[in-house]
């Protein structure tokens, strides 16, 4: 798309990592969301990354989120008869979200995002220095 494909590569990675951060935020926010049926419970979301060639630079790979997959783990059954959402037996269904795993995922995503920002900044500095050559 451009003469400076590093920006496209780093940009696609930042976009993908930001999708990952968003899903972590969604999962953590809904960790305590309960439902009256096992099917109605929130399901943890996880993005799937795939390498994708940059347009006009077929030998370079950026990142694309191919899909956001929902966890197939069964909802956790909890006895809580006082809850207005409880079913006839007094059970509510909570999503199987592991807050520790989500936090780890969040740290990993934010580190990867930072690494790509560094790449972006380095590439920008080099490009500016090249453009102002001889001044």
């Amino acid at each position: 798309m451009s003469n400076l494909p590093i920006f496209d590569v780093a940009g696609s990675a930042m976009q993908a990592q930001s999708v990952r951060l968003n899903t972590v935020a969604s999962n953590l926010a809904n960790a305590n969301t309960v439902a009256g049926t096992p099917e109605g419970a929130y399901r943890a979301k996880q993005p799937v990354f795939a390498a994708e060639a940059i347009p006009d630079h077929q030998s370079l790979a950026g990142v694309r989120v191919t899909e956001v997959r929902e966890s197939t783990a069964e909802a956790v059954k909890r006895y809580d008869p006082g809850n207005p959402l409880a079913d006839a037996q007094g059970y509510v269904y909570a999503p199987d979200v592991d807050p520790v795993a989500q936090m780890v995922d969040m740290i990993s995503a934010s580190r990867s995002y930072q690494a790509n920002v560094e790449v972006f900044n380095s590439a920008k500095e080099l490009a500016v220095a090249t453009l102002t050559m001889g001044r």
Partner: peptide, 17 residues
């Protein structure tokens, strides 16, 4: 070479890369 390395860093979390 910078482009190749940037592509590696971008795909640090891509399975099978």
């Amino acid at each position: 070479r910078l482009q190749v390395l940037a592509s590696n860093l971008a795909n640090a979390d891509t399975p099978g890369f």
